[in-house]
Design a protein around this nucleic acid. Sequence first.
DNA 1: CATCATTGTTGTCAACGCCTACATTCGGCT
DNA 2: AGCCGAATGTAGGCGTTGACAACAATGATG
Lengths: 202, 202
Amino acid sequence: MPLAAPVVSPRTYHHGNLRAELLERAEQTLATDGVDALSLRALARDIGVSHAAPARHFRDRQALLDALAIDGFQRLNRAMQSAARDDAALRDRFERVGAAYVEFATTHAALLGLMYAHKHAEGAPEELVEAGHGSLAVAVDLVVEGQAAGQVREGDPLRLAQLAFATVHGLAALAAGDLLEGAPLDEMVALAADGLWRALRA
Amino acid sequence: MPLAAPVVSPRTYHHGNLRAELLERAEQTLATDGVDALSLRALARDIGVSHAAPARHFRDRQALLDALAIDGFQRLNRAMQSAARDDAALRDRFERVGAAYVEFATTHAALLGLMYAHKHAEGAPEELVEAGHGSLAVAVDLVVEGQAAGQVREGDPLRLAQLAFATVHGLAALAAGDLLEGAPLDEMVALAADGLWRALRA
DNA sequence: CATCATTGTTGTCAACGCCTACATTCGGCT
DNA sequence: AGCCGAATGTAGGCGTTGACAACAATGATG
C-alpha cells in the first residue's frame, strides 16, 4: 500500500525540490564543516532520500561543487555591483566595492575557497568561469569610469582593475588564513583602498 | 645478510627512507593531479610498500598534507629571503621579493593552495602557522628597513607589510585562477610593485 | 487511458582512511 | 656475541564513500 503516508512526513515518492534542498544543505555543511565534509551520501541521509537520489541532479560530487561555486559567484557579483552603484565619490565607491568583497569573503570563507579552487580551472563549466569573470568586470567598469572622469590614471583598464582586484582578494585571503594578527578588517580595507587610490589616481 | 644490495631492487624489509620518498611522490602527484588525488594507499602502492606502511610516518592523511605545507612554506620563505637580501635599491628589492612569491605560487600552484587551505587554521601544528608567518615576516622586515631609511611612509609596519603581501598573494591567486586573461605575469608584477611603491613611499 | 521521460530506490563494486594484530629489522645494552 | 625493546613494515578487516546499473513510482502528454 503505497498510500500510507504517516502524518509526520507526508512526503511523496518524489521529493519535488531535491535539487534546491541539496544545494541548501550543502552550503550549510560547507560553512560549518568544510569542503571535505561534503558527501553526497551524507546529504541524502540528512534530507531523507536514498543514497543515489542526488545523482539525478548532480552527475557527481564535482558537479555539486561547481553548482555551489556558480551560485556563490552570482551572489558575490550582485553584492559588488550593488556597492558599485553607490552614488558617493568614486574613491569611496572603490572602497565600498572592496569592502563588499571582503565582507562576502569572510562570511563565506569556505565557499570562496571553493569558488577559486583550481580544480575548476580545467574542464570547468562555461557558466562557472563566466560567473568568475563577473566580479572582475565590476572592477573594470569602475576603472573605466574613473578614467573617463579623469580621476584614474591612464593605462589598460583591465590590468589596473586586476591590480585592484588582486589587492582586495589577497586581503580577504589573509583574513581567511588568519594572517592578519588581529588587525581590524575594516581598517585594513581602508588602508588598502587608500593605497590603491594612491596607485591608481591620475 | 643485510649487505648484499643487488643492483635491481635490493629493497630490504625496511625501506630506510620511506618518509622522504612519500613526501617526494606526494608532491609529484599533488602537482600533476591535485590534492584530491593524494591517497596514502596509492602512494604506498607506487613506492612498493604495504598500504599501511605510511601510517608509521604520517598518522593520517592530514598529517601528510601538513608536512607538505610546512615544507612548502619553508622553501617559499627561503626564496623570498634570498630575494630580499639582494643589494639593489629598496624599491627593486620589493619587486624582487614579490616576483619570487609569484614565481613560487605559479610553479607550485597546487602546493600553495594546500598551504593556505583553511583546514590548517584549526588544530594546525604550531610549526605550520609559524612557517606561514615567516613569509609575512620578510615583508615586515623590508618595510621596517624602508622606514628607517626614510623611504617608506610612517605607519604600523605590520599593516603596511600585510597590504603588500596581500597584493602579491592576490596577484598569484589571480594567475592560478586563470583570471589574468593573458596579461604577462611579469608585467603584472611590475605594475603591482609600481602601485605598491606609490602607496608605501614616504 | 497508454506511454514515456523524470525522479527516486535498492543493490553492488572498488577505493579509501583508519584500526588492530603480527612480523621483521635495527640499535643499544650487558 | 647475544638479548631485548623500539622502530618500521605487513596482513587483514571495518565502515564510508563515489559511481554505476537495474528497477519502481510518478506525472505529464498524447
